[in-house]
């Protein structure tokens, strides 16, 4: 079974960030080339970290309010939350290996 990235565009910021456990938010935009390159890597990370880290994506061009709530300054932004609080963020494209190491450090 393939685990998928959950699209949270248009959802309530407080609801989505309040979840228990680890959640990685991919804040992206369709006209951002590095964001598009990152998408298949995040799909794979959803499988790699199934049951440990939820991976969500939000199109902040379609939902500008969400971009403001996440205080996005550049794309892609990857914001990592644990039990309702942001614990770290990465800006820009990273390889699957880099992101794997980063997530493992936070597990």
């Amino acid at each position: 079974m393939a685990y998928k990235v959950t699209d949270v565009t248009g959802m309530d910021f407080a609801d989505m960030t309040a979840q228990q456990g680890m959640t990685l938010f991919d804040l992206w935009s369709p006209d951002c080339a590095p964001c598009r390159a990152l998408a298949p890597i995040l799909d794979d990370l959803a499988n790699d970290f199934a049951g440990e880290v939820r991976i969500c994506k939000a199109d902040i061009a379609a939902d500008t309010g969400l971009g403001e709530r996440f205080a996005v300054r550049a794309l892609p932004t990857l914001a990592l939350y644990r039990d309702g609080a942001e614990v770290d963020r990465i800006i820009g494209f990273r390889s699957r290996a880099d992101l794997t190491s980063w997530l493992e450090r936070h597990l």
Binding site: A2, P40, I41, D43, D44, N47, D48, R96, A97
Partner: peptide, 17 residues
């Protein structure tokens, strides 16, 4: 080798990479 070192059954990005 390092690029290929991922589980193929659950990876969609290995071959293009």
């Amino acid at each position: 080798c390092v690029t290929a070192c991922w589980p193929l059954a659950t990876s969609s990005s290995v071959l293009p990479t």
